[in-house]
């Protein structure tokens, strides 16, 4: 190969890297902007109405706030290189149903007991996966199944309603308000929770000692172990955080549906993984950020909103979502590889 040819190939690879680099830096927010531009474009064409309105934008965030809460916590697991917490759906269902059951002792008892149950599930995961090093996917799937069995055996396949169990009207009202409380008549409580969690978790993940140790654990577990990080505790903590946010999500979902039942929270496991991975966290661990995960959640919200406005059926939405998911993740993996930041 002559020098000239050598030069040519170099140039081409540089320009290609340039594009991928933009993709990599702008990341998921590039996609967010893309979807918003698409929405504005379609609105200008007159295909859809009411996209660029304040209330629609609020709706978008409102619709994904619960998913966001669950995904933000689960992101710590992905960050630590342990894929995902597939026990999230039944954690949500169990904590929700326990809260409804405990409403007979008042609102505070309900919330406290839900969080106790959530913590116990987190601890079980932490022990099995942190200490015994079980494969996280099958373990959380098995635990999901087992918890489902527990709920259905204890409550005998029945649903329970807050207003039939609670000791006072006040408790029911408070419980209903977990989802329904609006600040300034517009901003819902789950949205506030989401925003607080984003700030808190962003700080924890990228600035705190715990976050940095977790990153090393996720990126190179052996190195982390040899440099004196208590790897077992790091992984355990990630699973406990995830269980706690699942509890928060479970309480909100139960408050929304006003019924405690075993099927509450179904589907949140895979939806959360989708958001996390679209948001730029790789399953290999140690890469990505909370802000990225928020972007992933927003993309899912925007996508759902746009498709609904366009009149795409629910089932076709699934199909499109699945395909976009694979494409975005594929591009992300490719960009990382081409930039030499991933050996996979």
């Amino acid at each position: 190969m002559s020098d000239l040819e050598q030069n040519k190939t170099d140039l081409r690879s540089v320009s290609q890297t340039g594009f991928l680099k933009i993709l990599n830096v702008a990341g998921i927010y590039g996609v967010v902007v893309l979807f918003i531009l698409l929405g504005i474009f379609l609105q200008l064409l007159g295909v859809i109405n009411n996209f660029m309105t304040a209330s629609n934008m609020l709706n978008i965030v409102d619709a994904v706030s619960m998913l966001g809460i669950v995904a933000l916590g689960m992101a710590f697991i992905t960050y630590s290189g342990h894929f995902a917490d597939l026990s999230a759906p039944t954690t949500m269902a169990l904590t929700g149903i326990v809260a409804v059951q405990m409403l007979q002792f008042g609102f505070v008892a309900a919330i406290v007991s839900a969080f106790i149950v959530g913590t116990i599930i987190g601890l079980i995961n932490a022990f099995a996966i942190g200490k015994l090093k079980v494969n996280p996917i099958i373990w959380t799937l098995a635990l999901n199944y087992m918890t489902l069995g527990v709920i259905r055996v204890i409550w005998a396949n029945k649903q329970i309603y807050p207003d039939m169990i609670a000791s006072s009207e006040k408790a029911v009202e408070l419980f209903d308000n977990i989802y329904r409380l609006r600040f300034f008549n517009k901003i819902a409580l789950p949205m506030i929770m989401l925003i607080i969690l984003v700030f808190l978790f962003h700080f924890v993940m990228s600035k705190s000692k715990f976050g940095i140790q977790l990153k090393i654990t996720g990126a190179a577990k052996k190195s982390a172990e040899y440099s004196g990080i208590n790897v077992e505790r790091m992984i355990g903590a990630a699973f406990i955080i995830s269980a706690l946010t699942a509890t928060l999500g479970g309480l909100t979902v139960t408050s929304l549906s006003r019924v405690g039942a075993w099927y509450n929270g179904a589907g949140y496991d895979f939806k959360a993984v989708t958001a996390i991975v679209i948001g730029g966290m790789t399953l290999a661990g140690g890469r990505g950020s909370i802000i990225g995960v928020l972007g992933g959640v927003l993309v899912i919200g925007l996508m759902n909103n746009l498709m609904t406005l366009l009149g795409v059926g629910t089932f076709s939405q699934d199909m499109i979502r699945g395909i976009i998911f694979i494409i975005v993740v594929g591009l992300n993996a490719k960009s990382l590889r081409n930039l030499g930041r991933d050996d996979a």
């Binding site: 894929f83 995902a84 996917i137 895979f270 993984v273 989708t274 991975v277 399953l283 089932f315 076709s316 939405q317 699934d318 199909m319 499109i320 979502r321 699945g322 395909i323 998911f325 694979i326 993740v329």
Partner: peptide, 14 residues
Amino acid sequence: FIVTLGMLTALQGA
């Protein structure tokens, strides 16, 4: 995990 999860969602829709 991701590929087949995406495939699961897409096929379900299909």
